[in-house]
Design a protein around this nucleic acid. Structure first.
Lengths: 118, 118
DNA sequence: AGGGCATATGCGTGTCAAGGTATATAAGGA
DNA sequence: TCCTTATATACCTTGACACGCATATGCCCT
């Protein structure tokens, strides 16, 4: 599953689909990627459950499926608990990325974290 | 960065380090992985900023660094907003994984669904 | 039916990364 | 100093995969 999102073109496709569903041609056009490449990546994404497609005449409309993303999130969970212990230097980092999100998150996450034992 | 965590052995190492820092020998022993393999993966992880090491006599103690995980989380963020629109059957799933996080997130996120055009 | 558009698939090729084995570096203890 | 432990690196081989190109499949329209 991680191998799927390790491929930059596939991540680009996923990021494109997050706004709304797209046809193969639209993806090809927006990402300036040869059509067989798009189709092949879509196949991989479909078989991995990241996307699904519906038929619209000759076109196929692709859209995201939530499950794999949740699995990634689930894998990330233990590490999230870990890094919330290190909220010092990374506050600045998050500030740069998204000010408002960081602020909200900060108010609701307290730093009660497992310490390194040993 | 995604290529880093795409490798199963590396994910195993990261999961092992989440509890506490470990020496190369401990990782080798616990994961039953040849020592050069461990060292090579640790090198990749170190150069990608996932881990750092301190010297303890002849040993090197490796521990996690938070930054790359935050980046993964940041990449996941837009998709998280997406899948929270599909919160039906997966509610139970998330409940099992992390009760408090899910609840908090849900309160602040609205359901903005892309509509099927056509 | 035939032609054009939209998408999928097959094949050959090059690249890159992981594993195995051997060896190098370095610190500790006798 | 010599030996042992701990970790890192070098070299080679192999397999997976992404790409380009060509072609196949399928639907629409006239």
């Amino acid at each position: 599953m991680f191998e799927i999102i390790a491929e930059p073109n596939r991540r680009a496709i996923l990021s494109l689909l997050v706004s709304s569903q797209q046809s193969v041609g639209e993806i090809e056009r927006r990402l300036r990627m040869p059509q067989p490449t798009v189709s092949k990546h879509l196949r991989v994404l479909r078989e991995a459950g990241f996307v699904e497609s519906t038929v619209d005449a000759q076109r196929r409309l692709y859209r995201l499926k939530p499950e794999p993303f949740q699995e990634v999130d689930a894998w990330l969970a233990p590490f999230r608990r870990f890094w919330s212990a290190h909220v010092d230097a990374l506050e600045r980092h998050l500030d740069r990325i998204d000010q408002s999100t960081r602020t909200k998150r900060k108010t609701k996450e307290k730093t009660t974290r497992p310490k390194p034992r040993k």
